[in-house]
Write a protein that binds this DNA or RNA. Sequence first.
RNA 1: GCGGGUGUGGCGGAAUGGUAGACGCCGGGGACUUAAAAUCCCCUGUCCUUUGGACGUGCGGGUUCGAGUCCCGCCACCCGCACCA
Length: 838
Amino acid sequence: MTDTRFDPSSADGRWQRAWEEAGTFTADSYSEKPKSYVLEMFPYPSGRIHMGHVRNYTMGDVLARYKKMRGHEVLHPMGWDAFGMPAENAAMEKKVHPGTWTYANIEAMKSQLKRIGFALDWTREFATCDPEYYGHEQALFLDMYEGGLVYRRSSEVNWDPVDMTVLANEQVIDGKGWRSGAEVEKRKLDQWFLKITDFAEDLLDGLGTLDDWPEKVKLMQENWIGKSSGLEFSFGLSNGEKLPVYTTRPDTIFGASFCAIAADHPIAQGLKDDPEVAAFIEECKKGGTTAAALETAEKLGYRTGITAKHPFTGADLPVFIANFVLMDYGTGAVMGVPGHDQRDFEFATKYDLPIARVVAKDASQADAPMGDEAESGDGVIVNSDFLDGMSVEDAKAEVIARAEDGGWGKGTTVWRLRDWGISRQRYWGTPIPFIHCEACGIVPVPKDQLPVTLPEDVDFETPGNPLERHPTWKHVDCPLCGAKARRETDTLDTFTNSSWYFLRFASQPADKPFDADEIAKWMPVEHYIGGIEHAILHLLYARFWTRALAYLGKFEVKEPFAALFTQGMVTHETYGRSVDEKPVWYSPEEVERTSDGATLKADGEPVDIGRVIKMSKSKKNTVAPDAIIANYGADAARWFMLSDSPPERDLPWSEAGIEGCWRFVQRLWRLFDQIDESATGEDKALARKAHQAIVAVADDIEALSFNKAVARIYELTGAAEKAAPSEARNFAIRTVLHLIAPMMPHLAEEANAKLGNTALIANAEWPSHDPAMLVEDEVTIAVQHMGKLRDTLTAPKGASKEDLEALALASENVQRSINGAAIRKVIVVPDRLVNIVT
RNA sequence: GCGGGUGUGGCGGAAUGGUAGACGCCGGGGACUUAAAAUCCCCUGUCCUUUGGACGUGCGGGUUCGAGUCCCGCCACCCGCACCA
């Protein structure tokens, strides 16, 4: 061949078309082969692929292509998480319909993805805003309703009075709407909920089976579910009412010196006629939306004048309204034990309440004074009547037992996890398939009338939910009685769309959401790859939906994702200057980077090189994948994504790095040209390296240690380049070609074709290795004196301890170091080292 | 505050308790060329009295013949949660 350069601008597209025409990556649900389901979290169609996507999808792609080479039937699909706010924002700003905007973005991103050469089964592509998809989602939602997992109740929401919309907590900034800047109100609205709490225990237990999930993610989910156990009991109040409280420390009950209730607790609300109480409650509501405010927030209380009778001592404890008690956890009321709870301690200190010790290191410390903070640790119960001398654990059990025997309380489990509120007062989402009828109440839309589609003729000129103000859409007849009725105008939280998309990828019949046999074939996902930002919500919701659908008898899968991998971010240096004391940022294209600094191309003056941080528009430190692929080709970009940084860590993008990848692509291209069929002769060392690399690269890919696989390939490449022509060298070169095939598929196909192979290398088998060739016959032995390296020597593998010791003692360097001292001991690790101790 | 993670050359990072720095990037020197690009070769942790040696994996201790790796105590940075009773 005469080409001295690999030209991706012609090769990339050629092979992408070849794969597409051959249907190389179309998954066959009825294949006899073992299956692999490789999935990356599907993207929101913002309109353009960023480097984070490229990294994410390259990792999955290498796995998918590798598994295929290993003889697996691979399902590697792609689609679009296409509902959500940005489309509505675009509609308002650009006067374009959310659907038009979204589908145009999908087209743009799809063509970008295709240019990177991902081994995706595009026949299964869908967008969650396709009526077909959300129609099936509505059907599943109705099934959940029938199964008792859906309910409606009044719930407090963040209401933006200007945009006339409900805001998520993270859209409320300092008590104001993020878009309108208006003061956010708390409003009670009837909202739809999914009963995720029914599955709290199962979702928690299931974490124990997820051996291939990062510990960190499991821990985050565990904390989010937040199981705690304790005692719920009621205080009798001086006003004749009962005050139920929940505590995880019933063992400290004798240390209780006050009670505290939340500002929105019914008892507090009942005292609102007193203007002082009303003012205090108002103050509690205002305080603290931001994290910083919460941290520094002072414990504030209002003494109600009501007292609570202690169930054992009969003492009268003052009841406070307090800003640190939350209505929506436990009973919204607590017993205050200042000695052994830090919040209670701070509160008691401020309001001069008794701080009693009821837990001590040992019985003799019963009267030890309290320090300047609460003691929440373990110990022995003291000053507590019948509990004295018990361990904390025994005392908890004893108090719960007495409460249950006495009928005034019971052991309880409390969860932090709340039911999932799924109502959104927005247009661009899945319509909730219900009808409100005066006579019949809430009526599900009959399944044969699904999908309930979104109306096309909507305007975004005025604030509020376009579905609500649409002239005709919501007016329907009741499916039961035929009377005039009203459609539900709320749409589903977009997290519901991503809670089952992996099922629809696996199976997409027209008449139902999925087919049980196909689900059984493909699920669970073997490799799920995405960002850590989805550690809790998306992954918990998807686990819940899978359980809920299994509970409804749809299939038997419980955990959708057998293995989870959370990849790091793509980062870049930042370039900036301080202009009038305000930072001004420059993009990498505007800057000339030299080895010791950077200058602005526009004026030639230096700019400051800032921290290496996640690529973001605001800091202008982004690099567009499009431009990179146009300049260097898809394979160099893919190789960069896999090189150097371990995949779970951040990857710093650099111009020099991509240049290096480009050079390597060309190096390989030249190497693949050097197969010499007429070459004869052996090169056992090189052959051994090739066999070792086959095993090592496979192991590294399976462990997702792509950076190590890359290093191995560099090594074998270097060795093959240096070697003289031989059969072994031809073998090594062919091996490199196959090892890089999952990573740099275009280069691999082009070289493979040049070598006269008519079959696609994408369909090739992973090279097999000879186990006998993995073993070295000579090893390098380190020789140490007192643990310090003095020499190295070469010995046959498996040499005896005696031989190695003799060889080591024969070393000049070793003798010089020993310098005649008496040898006390010689440690020999066969095939590794000899350490002489004097 | 609680929980988790990370710390190794100029940089990204390798290293079953056994030769620290594989591999890549940057940098330096050389070859080829009229010249450049491309390519190839060599060097590249610090220091010293340089056929050798000392020091060196955030800091301080410890275990061990031997510690980046194990144990104890610190420091720094990053991430998550946040008054959850």
